[in-house]
């Protein structure tokens, strides 16, 4: 009985230390990526190419999801607000929910499952088929040539995608609120404009999405680079990218929100 307990504890301890090891490893990898970012910035075409791929990969899903989320916000928001007789605040509600919270978070979750997993799979496959080794043997550093451009592409794309998500969401809220339900057009927009603050709301939302961009891109390139060079290894790493980045996004969102909007 006691030995079983000890074995259980040992297993728990091992998995904790393993995770810490991995975190340390991933941090060193991030450092190396930043250190070798020179090529990704100097030959910016490499990064642009990856921005194109991550952007195109995620654009449709981001736009469509943004529209639907905004439309749902319009319905739910109107239903709640009109109970308090303040349906005129619908524009404010839709815009603030999206810009502060749902835009960055949902776009990041979608980005992780669409682009993040694709980046992991791509790098993992390059590893499994020895393309990274071949690059090393050609005296080209794969972190500089393959990893850094993808990392920066993710970091740049994320705020743009989140902004598009929010814009589509606001449009969706407008469609439902104004066109379908009949909230006054002028009130919808003017309320939104007067109550959404640039510094407090928009800048903070952009900061959030930039942080999420770093998190997702970091996890995606690390999982790909670190995966076992086999088919199972790659598929496992792809799953881990989605799971880990989703959790990390939500945890980081809580912390950022706590700092940004406490009491305000």
């Amino acid at each position: 009985m006691l030995t079983k307990l000890a074995a259980g504890l040992r297993l728990l301890g091992r998995s904790v230390t393993d995770r810490l090891w991995r975190l340390g490893f991933a941090s060193r990898f991030l450092l190396a990526t930043l250190l070798y970012s020179g090529m990704a910035l100097r030959r910016f075409g490499l990064t642009i190419r990856e921005i194109y791929f991550t952007g195109v990969l995620s654009l449709i899903i981001i736009l469509v999801s943004g529209l639907f989320v905004g439309m749902v916000l319009g319905l739910q928001g109107y239903d709640t607000l009109q109970r308090f007789g303040s349906a005129s605040a619908l524009g404010t509600l839709v815009a603030l929910s999206l810009v502060r919270e749902l835009g960055p978070v949902v776009a990041a979750l979608l980005f992780a499952s669409r682009a993040g997993s694709a980046i992991t799979a791509e790098i993992g496959l390059m590893k499994a088929t020895e393309q990274l080794s071949a690059m090393e043997m050609m005296a080209v550093n794969p972190i500089a040539r393959v990893v850094a451009p993808r990392f920066w592409a993710g970091v740049v794309s994320m705020p743009l995608l989140a902004a598009l998500f929010s814009a589509m969401g606001i449009f969706g809220g407008y469609l439902v609120g104004v066109q379908l339900i009949g909230v006054d057009d002028g009130i919808f927009w003017s309320q939104m404009r007067s109550s959404v603050d640039f510094g407090d709301d928009i800048v903070n939302g952009v900061i959030k999405s930039a942080v999420f961009g770093v998190i997702v891109s970091w996890i995606a390139v690390f999982e790909g680079y670190d995966c076992e060079p086999t088919a199972e290894g790659v598929s496992g790493a792809t799953t881990r990218t989605v799971v880990t980045s989703s959790l990390a996004i939500l945890a980081a969102d809580f912390m950022l929100t706590a700092f940004m909007f406490r009491g305000a």
């Binding site: 496959l125 390059m126 088929t129 020895e130 393309q131 080794s133 071949a134």
Partner: peptide, 10 residues
């Protein structure tokens, strides 16, 4: 170096 399965960039 020629890798086992070519390792061409796909």
């Amino acid at each position: 170096m020629l890798f086992q399965f070519g390792a061409l960039f796909t």
